[in-house]
Amino acid sequence: MEEVELKMTQSKRVALCVTCLVDQVVPEIGVATVQLLRRAGYEVEFPEAQTCCGQPFFNSGFREQATDLAKRTVEIFEPFEAVVLPSGSCAAMIRVEYPHLLEEWPEWQHRAEELAAKTYELSEFLVNYADWIPRGDFEEIRLTYHDSCHMCRLLGLRDEPRQLLERVGGRISEMSESDRCCGFGGLFSVRMPEVSNAMTAEKLHQACDAGVEALVTSDPGCLTQMRGLTEGSSIKVEHIATVLEEVTR
């Protein structure tokens, strides 16, 4: 895990970096994120110039394109005191990769480090910084949790989403290899679709073996990947934000 010293945010305002995938494909996750942050007592801002953090280009080796998008993202979000993303993978891009990617330009690298220090994945923000403890009588939800690769391995976040789910009545039945990759990997999923789909099928198989109705994850990429192979299956794949939002409404 890359260590970034996170600055405790004093202000009650946060900027939402919604991610391109949530914005265009699964906006309900963005809506749920806004509601959750408000329930936790925060005022949410959405800088409209935001587009993509550059990760797809970075992962494909298009460094120049990734660099341009990284600089653009730094510019857009640096005025805010805290930035929250409903995606472990994009949060890891900003937190871990930006400072490396921009190391050729010390000025930009410095700005990237400043941004990295105030960027949070949603569940991490709600547990460690907002200390959000929803009140109410929650019905028990039986679910299993998929640790997305970058969130657990690059950001070291494994407990936070589980804590949140348990706070709202979630009873987690752990699947075997909860941190085995779902097969997404960005463009990998279309560059090598046979392998990617086999990985996803294996993941869903392991989730079904956990004997639950819902498979919850914190990454929209994993979510859409896994949903793509659930036709005819009894398991529902959900994002942590929408699950939390619904039960705390």
Binding site: P27, V31, F46, S189, V190, G228
Partner: peptide, 27 residues
């Protein structure tokens, strides 16, 4: 389908930014 038997996600009817701009997400 470049993803073969896996269905790719469709774009949502309306994007998040569109909802935000319309004011419907205001507190």
């Amino acid at each position: 389908n470049p993803a073969l038997e896996r269905q790719l996600p469709a774009l949502a009817k309306r994007s998040f930014r569109e909802m935000w701009k319309s004011g419907e997400l205001e507190e």
